[in-house]
Nucleic acid binder design. Structure first.
Lengths: 128, 128
DNA sequence: CTTGACCTTCCAGTAACAGGAAGGTTCATA
DNA sequence: TATGAACCTTCCTGTTACTGGAAGGTCAAG
C-alpha cells in the first residue's frame, strides 16, 4: 500500500512516516515508480510507534520496543531486560495517569464553582 | 526556595524550569540577589507539568491542565469542557498503556525463545 | 490529454528542550 | 578575610522530533 493508506491505518502523518524511515525505524519496499510500498507488518510497527510515542516514550525507547517486536527469537538476556524495564515504566505511567485522573475529577466534581479554600483537592495537592 | 531545590522536589531539570518560565507557565518571585524564589504552590505546578509532560501531553495541553488547577472558581462552561476532554484522553491513554503492557508481557512470557510463527501475540498484533 | 489527487526529494521552520560559556552570589572553611 | 565549591544568572548555540512548503514526477478518471 502507498504511504497515504499507511498513514490512514496507523494514524501517523505521512511526513512523520517518512521521517521514521530517515532515522531507520522502518524500511518499506519501493515500487517501480519510486513510491514507498508498505505491508501489513509495517502498519503494525507504525501503530506501535504512534501509540508509544503518544504515551510519552522517546523515539529511542520506541526503537527498543520495536526491536522487541521484531526479535522473533527473543532469547538474549538484554532483550528480556529491556522488556522488563519497559514493563515497569508502563506500570508507573499507568499509576500516574490514574492519579492525574483522580486529581482532575476532583477539580471538576468536588469543587463545583465555589471558592472555599478548604477544597479537598487543593489540600491533597498541597501534601505531595 | 531556590531553583535547585524546586528542581529536586519536582523532578524537572533547572533548565526546563527556566524554560517554562520563558514561555509563561510559571512566575516565581525574585529575591534581592536576582535568584528565583519558588513557593510550595510553584512546586505543585512543576510536578503537574513534569507528570503530564512525561505522559504524552503537549506543553499547550499542560497549560490547560495548569489553568484548571489555577482556576479557583472553576465556574465557566469551557473550563469544564476542557477538563472533561482531558478526562476522556486520560482514559484513552490508560487503556492504550494497558494494551501495550499486555503486548509486551506476551512478548516476554508467551513466546519464550522459540521461533514458531504461530506465536499468539504476533497473530494478535496482526489483527488490529 | 488535462485535471486533481496522489507521490517524490529537499530545504527551511518550529517545539521543547539541553549544553556550555561568562560571570555574579553564598557559604563553609582555612 | 580570603578562597574555593556549589550555587545562581543571562545568553547563545545545538539537538530532537517533527512540520510546512516548494518544485516536480505519477496515476486514474473524465
Amino acid at each position: 500500500m502507498n504511504i497515504g493508506e499507511a498513514s490512514g491505518r496507523s494514524g501517523l502523518p505521512a511526513k512523520t512516516i517518512r521521517y521514521y524511515e530517515d532515522i531507520g525505524l522502518i524500511r518499506p519496499d519501493r515500487g517501480d515508480n519510486g513510491y514507498r510500498d508498505y505491508g501489513a507488518d509495517d502498519v503494525h510497527k507504525l501503530r506501535l510507534l504512534h501509540r508509544s510515542r503518544s504515551l510519552g516514550f522517546s523515539v529511542d525507547e520506541c526503537r527498543q520496543l520495536l526491536a522487541l517486536y521484531e526479535d522473533k527469537s527473543r532469547a538474549s538476556a538484554d532483550v528480556k531486560e529491556i522488556a522488563t524495564s519497559k514493563l515497569i515504566e508502563i506500570d508507573r505511567k499507568i499509576r500516574e495517569l490514574a492519579e492525574l485522573r483522580r486529581t482532575l475529577e476532583h477539580l471538576v466534581h468536588a469543587c463545583h464553582g465555589n471558592d472555599r479554600p478548604d477544597c479537598p483537592i487543593l489540600e491533597e495537592l498541597s501534601e505531595g
